[in-house]
Design a binder for these strands. Structure first.
Length: 418
RNA sequence: GUGAGUGUAGCUCAGUUGGCAGAGCAUCUGACUGUGGCUCAGAGGGUCGCGGGUUCAAGCCCCGUCACUCACCCCA
């Protein structure tokens, strides 16, 4: 084959696209009831939008960004995630002047230059939400509850909500030091990756799956014990509010976020039936990010759902091709043109009508109707045109109904047979 | 970036110790001239991923390369 999609990119073809539309529709409906409005952002941004916010040493920035130089010699990057772009837009358009909370959602492609594997692509789609201007944990609880509602409404099954607080710029450094002090003496009992993480991102050692590392980190200081008064109060409030809203969740103090801008609340939705890439949605609070983009200090919280990751979990995601309501089978000299016109008229009244373009035997036209799954067939031949009368054949039960060759009457019969 | 596995028809896959490229499904056509599904008969469809080597002879053996898949790292 000469031309193919790039590695990690994919075409999404018709039968499958209906699952995508289903998820998007449900998300929009739920967002609306929570007051979230759609925002569309560019997929290409100036590179520093991402390097500054996501963190210079994060894996995304270090090795996963689609970065290149444009014709004006500017460094530009295909967005690897949505929040940085969103906050840029939020500040650029002074959206903080609207009454808080300002709530937005977006859906679209993200790009990361990673080695593809199951449920991981270089272009992947996220549905994301961002709520700005409120620090109260009630908003955290509400947005998590909304995420839960979206996932449940799509028919998703068997996911777990995990939750933690990773502190703020006041208490996290102290925790980081405490953790490093604990790990330093026993560092050689950890795997090579973890030894590298020690300097880069020691918190990530808590997330390592190597059995020896799980063993060695027993008794390490816990983030939740090192939260400052403010963060602790926030986290306690969140837990209480989630109880109130009956959002099922578990606390996982080892949850780690890969992006630098997160503060306080961090959460992740996982599925065990997905293989190794098991995160289906994740998010958290980012109270310092607007500030960093030059806006007024403004708290924010958001999440993103991975489309490709929830689709395989949705019951009945094996979608079938949609069948047309009607196939018109013309026979003879006059019929093809008349059929073309009739189809057009029926379409105007909301019927999915197809006409056979080729003059083949009736038998092969009927066979085609069957292959298409057409719900009804009208044979349009010399007799029918002469009498001004046709037979509508219902292909599901085989019944035939005589009808005058007139749009309203045909519409009635076809709609009734649906 | 690292490791392993797999590449044969549109799809799923057979292909023996190296000896003419195959099946099922799908598509199309036909079976007393205007009625589908079931059945039957038939047809089209291939650079055996690509390049080189060994051999009288390679889908099969050897080397290289590319792609895909899964996993690591990391993430939605």
């Amino acid at each position: 084959m000469k031309h193919k999609t790039l590695k990690g990119f994919q075409d999404i073809l018709p039968p499958e696209i209906s699952v995508w539309q289903h998820i998007e529709k449900i998300s929009r409906d739920v967002f609306k009831t929570y007051g979230y409005q759609e925002i569309r952002l560019p997929v290409l941004e100036s590179t520093d939008i991402f390097t500054r916010s996501i963190g210079e040493t994060s894996d995304i920035v270090e090795k996963e960004m689609y970065t290149f130089t444009d014709k004006g010699d500017r460094s530009v990057t295909l967005r690897p995630e949505g929040t940085a772009s969103f906050v840029r837009a939020y500040v650029e358009h002074h959206l903080f002047n609207n009454p808080a909370p300002q709530k937005f959602y977006y859906m679209g492609p993200m790009f990361r230059y990673e080695r593809p594997q199951a449920y991981r692509y270089r272009q992947f789609y996220q549905i994301g939400a961002e709520a700005m201007g409120v620090e109260d944990p009630k908003l955290d609880a509400e947005i998590i509850s909304m995420l839960s509602k979206i996932l449940n409404s799509t028919g998703l099954e068997g996911v777990n909500f995990e939750l933690t607080s990773i502190g703020c710029k006041n208490c996290r450094p102290a925790y980081r030091d405490a953790l490093k002090n604990f790990l330093r003496d026993r560092l050689n009992s950890f795997c090579g990756d973890c030894q590298r993480r020690f300097d880069l991102n020691p918190l990530r050692i808590l997330d390592c799956k190597v059995p020896g590392c799980i063993e060695s980190r027993q008794g390490s200081p816990a983030v939740l014990d090192h939260l400052c008064a403010d963060c602790k109060q926030h986290f306690d409030g969140l837990k209480r509010n989630l109880e109130t809203l009956s959002v099922r969740h578990s606390i996982n103090p080892n949850l780690v976020r890969g992006l630098d801008y997160y503060t306080k609340t961090a959460f992740e939705v996982t599925s065990e039936s997905l293989g190794s890439q098991k995160a289906v949605a994740a998010g958290g609070r980012y109270d310092g990010l607007v500030d960093e983009f030059g806006g007024p200090p403004t708290p924010g919280i958001g999440f993103a759902i991975g489309m490709e990751r929830i689709i395989p979990l949705i019951k009945g995601s094996m979608s079938k091709a949609e069948p047309p309501d009607l196939l018109i089978c013309p026979l003879g000299q006059e019929a093809p043109e008349k059929g073309l016109l009739l189809a057009e008229q029926l379409r105007s009244s909301g019927i999915w009508a197809e006409v056979n373009y080729e003059q083949t035997s009736l038998k092969s036209q009927m066979r085609k109707a069957n292959r298409l799954g057409a719900k009804n067939v009208i044979v349009l031949g010399e007799d029918e045109l002469k009498k001004g009368e046709v037979v509508v054949k219902n292909m599901v039960n085989g019944t035939e109904t005589k009808a005058v060759l007139e749009v309203q009457e045909l519409k009635k019969i076809i709609k009734a047979g649906k």
